[in-house]
Amino acid sequence: MDVNLHKSGNPGWDYNESLFKSIRINLSAVKARAAEIGINRSVKKQWQAAWQLRALACIDLTTLAGDDTPVNVTRLCVKAAHPISKDIVKMLNMNEKEAKLTTGAVCVYPNQVQVARETLDKCGEEGRSLPVASVATGFPCGQTPLGPRLDEIRSAVKDGASEIDIVINRTYALSGNWRGVYDEVRQMKVACGNAHMKTILATGELGSLRNIYKASLVCMMAGADFIKTSTGKEGVNATLVVALVMIRAIRDYYALTGYKVGFKPAGGIRTAKDACVWLSLMREELGEEWTRPTLFRIGASALLGDIERQLYHYATGCYPAMGQMPMG
């Protein structure tokens, strides 16, 4: 799998309101489609296990808490670099490439970037190539003046983050100031430099699916490499309904510009089964290319553990105890 993110960047597009201002989205119809995603496709046996491995490779293994310290950040990083326990690697007779699978990235607060980067650099080849993503711009609410928000990005990049998860200005979005949203995100893109920018829409706070579509398109025009559903701190997490709308925007933007923008659902995806549904969603709505970590990430912390347990079950036919898998 090609994990080189920097090939698929999105340089952005001139602000053009006519591309989104008359968007129509019917919630009940989107809900009906969302309800089908989980039942229209299904993976079993070795396919299921392979899909779980793919999901694992797309995880942005995340810790975003007030009590984060080097102790738990280090633990997280080591797990991200070696997510599958040796036992399972052995039981499944994984080949070298499979055995070296890592998560897509680790995702932390700006203050933890440095320690995360240093830890990973000590984790061998797998760790060195594993990106550190940092949230920034007054995460999760963004209610901070623009200057400090931009500084936050620069600081995280300087500390070694190669991916920045920014939050958009919901005040602007809800008041219909899409130009304002665009201009800010554009400046954030500049501040990111070579780092990849994921824009968090905080969909749970945008009020309508139309706003979600607009925010998606505005962010992509402003240069987002990924659009991301939520911070994990809003009342509504990543849902398939929201995802469908964002994915449509990605499709429309691709048709317009030829640039492929990635998608990152975050919050609430905890089981291997859920993860497979999300992969299926990406595959059906955008294509297989969008199921790879270059264009798809899942922001999660508990998911990895469940995938490991499912792989164990696949290998042995037995369900492991919660504490049986190595702690991450």
């Binding site: 070795q46 296990a49 994984m94 080949n95 299926s280 595959r283 199921t291």
Partner: peptide, 23 residues
């Protein structure tokens, strides 16, 4: 490794992410 690949033929599925049958 050949035997193992036959038992757990991930490689191919991991590359294409096929669904496989669900009868």
């Amino acid at each position: 490794m050949a035997g193992a690949a036959a038992q757990f033929p991930f490689g191919h599925i991991l590359d294409t992410l096929e669904y496989g049958p669900a009868l």
